[in-house]
Design a protein around this nucleic acid. Structure first.
Length: 424
DNA sequence: TCTGGGGTCCTAGGACCC
DNA sequence: TCTGGGGTCCTAGGACCC
């Protein structure tokens, strides 16, 4: 059976999620901002046409926002996560072998489904239309014999609307054409550093890269470069990952809404991040053997000294209890704290994660106290699952002065009954 | 005034062992 | 006179991705 990989990728995903509930925004320029309303992280087609780049700080485009009437949204990840689930489950109706690669894209095994395999372009268009109708989210679909080429197909078809959102790169002629005309910097796996080194070597197009000596390039740049070159030649090196491996670490961090030099505030921020990360970890039935905290002053401030600190603690017995982690986090903060710095970014990492089942076999974990503690965490998680933040630990503080600013937040249309869309 | 957050994998180099 | 070499493990940092 010929291997054919499909890639479905949502167009301007975060913006599309906002637009799905606001038909009045059709045809209007829209952006979604990062946490703390800092940078542009998603742009509508109209904004791209205005040449406003990805990642630009909001304050630098204030003039354009006013001039062109750009609709601005703070990020609303509860909404995007829910819309992502809807898109993925809709796609799953067409093809069982699905590998969700990120919040807005999934690879699928197109070769295994005869009705798709035998007429890729037409099937792609039907899938696309159905997802749009069911979820309100436009997607692009690329087909190829390797993931890297499927990504390239997607990249191209997003920019060339005449293809109707679907492109079949199993067609050799089309594949060769794209390798010549697409920019090298848009190849999956070629970042800024590699791009510059390749240009110095006079490798200027994906076609040049595909034609290079993969053994020599592999020795020079490592095994991933070797795979990229083979994938550009249609030889698949990255298989489907049907059962994704469990996460190896969980990070939670944020820029504070208002920087602070107070121990108490930074401590509350640390506890807030621990609480969120621990809840997410328990949801995946995992425990951690290592907590790291880190915090620093702003990096863009010209005045004032820079200060940054980070410290870890490892646990002999895997932990999932928020209280133990908070206790440890506060102690790590005390050990590293220095008076007089305006802290603006705070975060924590839970690493060396292990599965709960694995730890249950340990002879140390099943004391009566542990069992009770785990039960308590389950109760808290279940209360908070229906109403986020209803029960919390005092260590996080009550007013949360450290939390991010979100001036342009859209309603939680899909995850909160009080904010559900009203049809008049 | 104002510049995100969450991941993974790979590699080089040091420590250590025999 | 001549002062090894191979292997493993760990860690930090780089690079990439979305």
């Amino acid at each position: 059976m010929k291997k054919i990989i499909g890639l479905a990728d949502c167009n301007n995903f975060f913006v599309s999620c906002e637009k799905a509930f606001r038909p009045d925004l059709n045809g209007r320029p829209v952006v979604v901002l990062s946490n703390n309303d800092g940078c542009v992280i998603s742009r509508s087609a109209e904004v791209k046409a205005l040449k406003i780049p990805m990642g630009i700080p909001r304050f630098k485009i204030q003039h354009e926002i006013e001039k062109y009437g750009i609709a601005v949204f703070s990020s609303n990840f509860a909404l995007y996560g829910d819309m992502s689930n809807r898109v993925m489950s809709t796609l799953g109706r067409f093809t069982p072998d699905l590998e969700q690669y990120s919040i807005d894209e999934a690879f699928f095994n197109a070769g295994a489904v005869p009705v798709i395999r035998d007429n890729l372009t037409e099937a792609g268009k039907q899938i696309r239309a159905y997802i749009l109708k069911t979820t309100g989210i436009p997607v692009s679909i690329g087909f190829a014999t390797s993931k890297t080429l499927a990504k390239l197909a997607n990249y191209y078809v997003k920019k060339h609307t005449e293809y109707g959102g679907v492109l079949d790169l199993t067609d050799d002629e089309m594949k060769q054409k794209l390798l010549y005309i697409c920019p090298l910097s848009d190849i999956w796996g070629i970042g800024k550093q590699l791009y510059e080194k390749l240009i110095q070597m006079k490798i200027k197009t994906p076609a040049d890269l595909a034609a290079s000596d993969y053994i020599r390039m592999g020795k020079k740049f490592g095994v991933n470069m070797q795979k990229t070159i083979m994938e550009l030649n249609g030889i698949s090196c990255y298989d489907f990952i049907e059962n994704p491996a469990p996460r190896k670490s969980i990070m939670h961090s944020s820029t504070m809404g208002t920087p602070s030099s107070m121990f108490e505030i930074v401590s509350q921020a640390i506890c807030g991040h621990i609480s969120a990360a621990a809840e997410s970890m328990r949801k995946d039935s995992q425990k951690t053997c290592c907590l790291t905290i880190f915090y620093r002053t702003g990096v863009f401030k010209s005045s004032g000294d820079f200060f940054s600190a980070s410290r870890s603690q490892t646990f002999c017995t895997p932990v999932s209890d928020t209280r133990i982690l908070m206790h440890s986090g506060i102690r790590l903060l005390q050990q590293t704290w220095k008076q007089g710095y305006q802290i603006s970014k705070v975060g924590i990492i839970l690493s060396e994660l292990v599965s709960e089942e694995h730890t249950q076999m340990s002879m140390f974990s099943n004391t009566e106290q542990t069992v009770q503690n785990e039960r308590l965490m389950k109760v808290i998680d279940s209360i908070n699952s229906s109403d986020k933040g209803r029960v919390f630990f005092l260590g996080q503080g009550i007013n949360k002065p450290w939390s991010s600013v979100r001036k342009f937040q859209s309603p939680r249309y899909t995850t909160n009954w009080n904010e559900i869309i009203r049809v008049k």
